[in-house]
């Protein structure tokens, strides 16, 4: 059993119900091939970098699963037939390093999915779940750190720009004010 990841892009013209239907259709193909679906990551609607089949946007979803290599051809055939799928890409995780990364991604997604529906679905068993979710929050915070740093850098740049703009404005005001007086 090898580890695979499949990313596919659905057309933006579909409604929310239709997109979920298409995703379930593709996951059903995986189940038929006895693939072990570990995680699904809904990246959501994104702007495409270039037009594909006259579309400028697309709904990205990623599936993480385990199968034998022979079943990949069948899965890709189904994706190719489906007219709602604009693009797809399957990647095999081969080395020990890649497998480590694969497990990390799957863990992060499962923890996120646990984290969101926990308060809605299972209210009576809050005590046990709260204990479970504590370490999850810590790990998430560690993972998201580098991204936050980069964002903060951008924010700093943005704030600097705004500062400059403000300075210019204040200068303009100081220049204008004596004329008015």
């Amino acid at each position: 059993m090898n580890r695979y990841e499949t990313l596919f892009v659905l057309k933006p013209t579909l409604t929310d119900e239709e997109t979920t239907a298409q995703i379930t259709k593709i996951t059903d193909v995986l189940h038929k091939q006895n693939a072990e679906l570990l995680a699904t990551d809904l990246m959501g609607m994104r702007k495409l970098a270039y037009t594909v089949e006259k579309q400028n946007r697309g709904y990205y979803t990623v599936l993480y699963y385990k199968t034998h290599g022979s079943t990949i051809a069948e899965i890709e055939r189904n994706l190719r037939i489906n007219e709602e799928v604009i693009k797809f890409l399957t990647i095999k995780f081969d080395n020990t390093k890649e497998i480590k990364q694969f497990n990390k991604i799957v863990d992060s997604i499962t923890q996120k999915s646990k984290h969101i529906p926990a308060p809605i679905e299972t209210k009576p068993i809050q005590e046990s779940e709260s204990i479970e979710t504590k370490p999850i929050q810590e790990s998430e915070s560690i993972e998201t750190k580098p991204i936050q740093e980069s964002e903060s850098n951008e924010n700093i740049e943005a704030t600097e720009e705004t500062k400059i703009v403000q300075e210019i404005n204040t200068e303009a005001q100081t220049v204008e004010s004596p004329i008015e007086a």
Partner: peptide, 11 residues
Amino acid sequence: KRARQTALIPY
């Protein structure tokens, strides 16, 4: 190159 194939980044 993979990001280009999946239209995340322009060619």
